[in-house]
Amino acid sequence: MNELRRWLTPMVLLLLVLAAVETYLRLAAVPSYIFPQPSAVFSELFRSFPGLAGHALTTVVETVAGLAIGVCAGVVLALLIVVSRTVERALYPLIIATQMVPVFAIAPLLVVWFGYGIWSKAATAALLVFFPVTVGMVDGLRSPTEDQRDLLRSLQASRRQTLRLLELPASVPALFSGLKVGVTLGVVGATIGEWIGAQRGLGFVMVQANALLRLERVFAAIVLLTAVGLLLFGLVRIIEKKVLARRG
């Protein structure tokens, strides 16, 4: 019931906005190659759904692959940073630098290096995903209180044991926060990868439809992309709730 309510309000708002846009576009007779009517977008979505769903699946696979790589890289980097001050000083500027370079500048290189298949898109996604995961994980690993560290010190726990018994478990909430930001960035990364060079995926659909001035198809792809993002985000939230509830 509550769940329904939570979804109902944004849905109603969305429908109202769409209705207003539709009315305006019809009254002002805006041509569809400038701005397609919502009804045209949805009819395109339903008409081409099987094909579009296949493209969406490709984007999902790329995103999930990028997410997996990005999260692993993020966790490993965070561990290195936390364990060694030297590594921290050496790595942190480089890690921040990777986020200063626009993805659009790097994505073509990634296509050259990793080919037109899913791996160049996964790499683009991973490049965006690893950053929030690293930063979040570092904070998480550093979150134990001085009292908690003292307790492990009094037991003469080794560095490794402190990591395993204290720092890693303490960083689980931070990992999920990083993951939630990472999911949305992963979808963006995969799509950008597809714009640069691909034969499949929602990004590819957008580029192609754009060139043909079929804007209702571009918007249909955007709608599906949003759905994909929300779906993955929701999935992470469900896992997060389950895990955090079990830890208490």
């Binding site: 009292d147 003292d150 037991l155 830890r247």
Partner: peptide
Amino acid sequence: RTVAYMPQHDTLLPWRSALENAILSADV
């Protein structure tokens, strides 16, 4: 490894059950 220390604040680890907290030293 001869001194057992009980801190002034209980310092239980929130992600472990009460029993798991009690056996922390076994893990170390």
